[in-house]
Nucleic acid binder design. Sequence first.
DNA 1: TTAGTTGCAAACAATTTGCACGTTG
DNA 2: CAACGTGCAAATTGTTTGCAACTAA
Lengths: 145, 145
Amino acid sequence: MNSIPAIKSALKASGRRITSKREVILDLLRKIPGHPDAETLFLEAKKIDPRIGLSTVYRTLALLKKEGFIEEHRLGQSHGHFEASRRAAHVHFSCLACGQVIECENPLVNRLKTEIKRTLNADLKEFHVYAGGFCRSCRPTGGRP
Amino acid sequence: MNSIPAIKSALKASGRRITSKREVILDLLRKIPGHPDAETLFLEAKKIDPRIGLSTVYRTLALLKKEGFIEEHRLGQSHGHFEASRRAAHVHFSCLACGQVIECENPLVNRLKTEIKRTLNADLKEFHVYAGGFCRSCRPTGGRP
DNA sequence: TTAGTTGCAAACAATTTGCACGTTG
DNA sequence: CAACGTGCAAATTGTTTGCAACTAA
């Protein structure tokens, strides 16, 4: 599920087209590690297809997000960061000092999600846990010296 | 803790001043229910002090956030929403259809926060859980008819 | 007195949109 | 060839900043 062919056929099924630009962006979302923002994806995409425009990147990201293939996260910054959707929800920790983002899997995330869903009787489309603070190395005391 | 007098003396202690504008914003943050954004606070503040500027609202919010008295949340929209800091972290659910925000207290939130903190050995300053989807009334099926 | 605070307008950053042209199915 | 996608530039939105005037301590 959520392999590139699966995404392509899902897009086709909803009347969208598989264009060379979309393929480039789709590939990059797989290849770039971490949580690239629109600008990063744009710059990388231009290396492959110099004629791609920033708005195409934004439009493609919006499409993939609407279809549920990628997630957009606000990692304490004013712009969005993107990553391919995964089965297990996980925590994004962002260090306020060095800026690194650490992903944390923890079974409580899914348990919490399930409980919230049941409590609200809602249809959950997104579930994001964000933690901000100072990482082991950057925290005032207790880190390595 | 985090009563208005407490906030004022904490501000004074760090060399800040208690101005009439700041008092207005501080009061509004207590009185306005829900999670107002900067624009809402600005419009309400103008009813009390018509000479207040939007930048003062932003600057005051930034200050209160830095000092830990308020939290800024990204509730699925491109702008921030603010609320007074509370002791218990809680979940913000935002309905993608009707826009209402529901707060959900659940003991798993604090347990998860504690576990993440221990796992990363980090100094956590923020811990936000955001859920987006369709509420009981707006979900395709299963809601009230 | 004097350092912190404010309003205003301008600057900025991130994202969206209108439109003529290009491309896919 | 018809509908969808794209580049470009301009428009929007949300927030920050420079600076002269203002004000709390």
